[in-house]
Amino acid sequence: MLSRTEKNFPKYLDEVRGNAQGAGLPFETLFVNDLLMEIYFYFSQKPPQATKEDLGCSTVYINRPDVKVIGHNEDGEDLARTLGYVIDATITGGDGVEEKFTSLCYPGGLPGVSMGYNHHGMIFSVNGLAGPTIDKAAPADFVLREVLRASNIDEVKNIVSNAGFGVSSGFNINVGSIVDTSTQWSVEVAPDVSESKVSIKEIHESDDPEKSTYYHMNEYRHLDIEVETAARSKGRLERALSLPVPTCAKDARNILGDTDDTTFPIYRSVRPSDEYATVCTGMFDLLNKRFDIYFDNPSGDTGPLLPFSIQCEA
């Protein structure tokens, strides 16, 4: 995996080396930290080994003429609630700015694997997907890191296809833009060796609440691939579909904060039946160019802890 990443993503491997040096940790420790999906679902030969049920994240899309929102629950280990962080990075090259983005990060991990936005006005959030894991392709976290460079949906597709290398584990990226707000995109990616399998569903602007709304949890919804859906993900999706169709940001927050299904709640907490929790909730408001992060249940009256203004500088 290291040799393949050296060939495919040398710049981002340098980022891992720099982080390791700054943290005073072995490079191998942080590199392995960026291979968690591959380790959980492929390389781990003895317990505890992750299952499809451990995957997290729930996303609500609303694309109406007057409301354009993508809300996202970031589910993961509860420790990330206190140890996670947001970075605001500007990376310059010989001819000026190469990359500029803001991204929520897991401790010691590459940016791009959770949610954030860049200076092209593109916004992203990620849902893990359990498909067939492949050990002869590029690590998923490095592909997701590359996505932070994208200036439009075509570039997103080219990046996740990763021609010549493919990707080792699956994921879904929820994509929007403050430049082109007419469409939102759900990008599903399945592992393959030489080039990833990619499906893009477009959520178009509509006055019809049913047509303007979409949900994504941890299952393949539109890419043609035979994978068993986890009961926890299926339960969250069924619960979201049973609720009134959202038409505003508050409605989306209410869905993401829903706990009425005590077995598979959309807003998760650590319990005997669930080792993962909703670490935080991100709300992207494309019309008002805002990204707000909530650390309490977003359906309550408490406002966001971290508000950001999304600027398009390209």
Rank of each mutant, 00 (worst) to 15 (best):
G131L: 05
E99F: 09
M122V: 00
P265H: 03
L129N: 10
E313I: 02
P246K: 05
S103Q: 01
L30W: 03
I70M: 06
T247W: 04
D95E: 14
I39S: 10
H72E: 05
T229V: 14
S161V: 14
C248N: 15
S177T: 00
V97R: 14
N73P: 00
R253Q: 11
A50P: 04
H120N: 13
P304S: 01
H119I: 01
S103T: 04
E188G: 04
E6N: 11
K201D: 01
S186A: 10
V67C: 11
I293K: 06
I62T: 06
P246M: 01
R290I: 01
S212W: 04
T181D: 03
G84I: 00
G164W: 00
F41Y: 15
W185V: 03
D258P: 13
P304H: 01
R253W: 06
S242G: 11
N118G: 03
L256S: 07
L237G: 00
V60S: 07
P48D: 10
P65G: 07
A249D: 09
R236G: 02
E28R: 07
P244F: 04
L2W: 09
E28I: 02
S273G: 07
V16R: 02
A50V: 06
A80G: 03
K46M: 09
P298G: 00
G282H: 06
T133D: 14
R221Y: 10
D14L: 15
N254Q: 04
L306N: 07
V16Q: 02
N218Y: 13
R81Q: 05
A50D: 09
A231I: 00
H216K: 11
L306W: 14
R64I: 12
A138Y: 02
Y214S: 12
L286N: 02
G121Q: 04
S168R: 00
P139S: 07
L241G: 05
I134C: 05
A249S: 15
I225A: 10
T51H: 05
R253K: 14
T181C: 15
E188V: 08
P111E: 13
A252I: 00
E28A: 05
F142L: 11
P26D: 12
F9E: 11
G131F: 05
F264H: 10
I293P: 12
A231W: 06
